[in-house]
Deep mutational scan, measured.
Amino acid sequence: PDLGLTQLFADPNLIENLKKNPKTSEMMKDPQLVAKLIGYKQNPQAIGQDLFTDPRLMTIMATLMGVDL
Rank of each mutant, 00 (worst) to 15 (best):
N43Q: 07
Q49K: 11
D2K: 03
K41G: 14
L37W: 01
E16K: 07
P55Y: 12
Q49V: 13
K19L: 11
Y40A: 04
P55M: 05
L18G: 00
K23P: 04
M58N: 09
P55F: 08
I38N: 12
F9W: 12
D2T: 09
I15Q: 02
I15C: 05
L8D: 02
G39N: 11
M58S: 11
L69Q: 15
L14P: 01
D54R: 00
I60V: 08
L3Q: 11
D11I: 04
L51E: 05
A35C: 05
P12F: 03
P1N: 13
D68Y: 01
T6I: 13
N13F: 11
R56P: 03
G4S: 14
T24Q: 00
I60P: 00
L51A: 10
L5T: 08
G4H: 06
V34C: 06
P22S: 07
P22E: 11
K36P: 00
I47M: 11
K36C: 05
M28N: 00
P31S: 11
T6G: 14
S25P: 00
K23S: 12
P22V: 04
T53Q: 12
N21P: 00
L14N: 03
D11C: 05
P55K: 14
K41C: 08
G39W: 11
L8S: 03
G4M: 14
M58L: 14
G4P: 15
N21G: 03
N43A: 05
P44G: 06
I38F: 07
N13V: 04
V34D: 00
G66D: 09
E26A: 08
D50R: 01
F9C: 04
L5F: 14
F9E: 01
Q7S: 11
V34L: 09
I47A: 11
G66H: 13
P55W: 11
L3M: 14
F9Q: 02
I15K: 01
D50T: 05
G48V: 12
T63P: 01
M27E: 02
P12C: 03
M27V: 05
N43G: 04
D68Q: 05
P12M: 05
N43Y: 09
Q45I: 11
L8P: 04
L33I: 07
S25I: 06
I60A: 02
D2P: 15
D2S: 12
L18T: 00
E16Q: 10
L57N: 01
D30C: 02
L37T: 00
P44I: 09
